[in-house]
Amino acid sequence: MIPLLILAPLILLAAVGAVWKARPVHAALFLALALSFTAVLYLALGADFIGLVQFMVYVGAVAVLIVFSLLIIHRGDESEEAARRRRALPLGLLCALPVPVVILAAVSRGAPTTVEGAPVLSVRQLGTLLFTTHAPAVIAVVVLLTAVMVGAALLAREPQPDRRP
């Protein structure tokens, strides 16, 4: 409980920073911070594997995200950002509102579960589970990520008709 109490505000603050900052690079760095705090939370809960994977995948991914944000978002966008933000704020709040409602409803509805000690899974067991029981989900995620990557590459590419392949 104590790690959660310490880390949750930090995660929340970093996440708010990620949404609030106008410059995309700042936002991405805050996102990295939020994700690393989440990794620390996993580590504090004794889930070493997921914590380290969280750190490796997401902090590494943020580096890529920054590259894409710099490639896709062109200069000049930053000055318009503040004005656009003011217009978008009500809509964003409206969209964000259901999230705590749903979470609160889910938490209050479900019976309070008490876990007798955290389940300890070895890396081998995790791998076996992922590639047998949850294989369809893994495959679906792989397809999704490939599609996203191709899309991002298309977006980043500027139209250059006379460019040699």
């Binding site: 760095l29 990295a32 594997f49 380290l52 994977v53 750190f55 490796m56 902090v59 580096a63």
Partner: peptide
């Protein structure tokens, strides 16, 4: 998971 730790920490270098 020492190997994983090594690579996880390595992600910080790029950043």
């Amino acid at each position: 998971a020492g190997l994983l730790f090594f690579f996880a920490i390595g992600a910080l270098t790029e950043l």
